[in-house]
């Protein structure tokens, strides 16, 4: 068997992928075809009933654990731009909703 692919460990290897289509089954076996840069795997969507086609989901061992919040994703990158431009001390201590 040709197992020669490289790799290291990460504790909870979960990767964002885009839902391309969904096969509606019972709630427990609602399966999405999720694309990771063009490589596609079936992913169980039972834990993310709110997920629909076009959403990005965080996938671990074949299960979607959460839907990526696009606004929060933008805000994280925006925070960094603020650090870049803003004054050193106060800019990044803006109270954040806990």
């Amino acid at each position: 068997m040709d197992w020669t692919v490289g790799g290291d460990g990460v504790m909870c290897l979960a990767v964002p992928g885009r839902i391309e289509s969904i096969r509606e089954g019972g709630l427990l076996d609602r399966v999405g075809r999720v694309s990771f840069g063009g490589s596609i795997r079936d992913v169980n969507l039972a834990f993310v009933p709110e997920a629909c086609v076009g959403h990005y989901v965080i996938v671990h061992v074949g299960f979607a654990l959460s839907v990526v919040d696009e606004d929060e994703a933008r805000r994280t990158l925006e925070d960094i731009r603020l650090i870049e431009s803003g004054p050193a001390q106060t800019d990044d201590t803006r109270p954040r909703p806990l």
């Binding site: 009933p49 654990l65 959460s66 990526v68 919040d69 929060e72 805000r75 994280t76 954040r96």
Partner: peptide, 14 residues
């Protein structure tokens, strides 16, 4: 919470 794009306070209730 510095990973807000993937984590909410209550997590995944299902």
């Amino acid at each position: 919470n510095a990973y807000a794009r993937a984590v909410r306070r209550d997590g995944n209730t299902g």
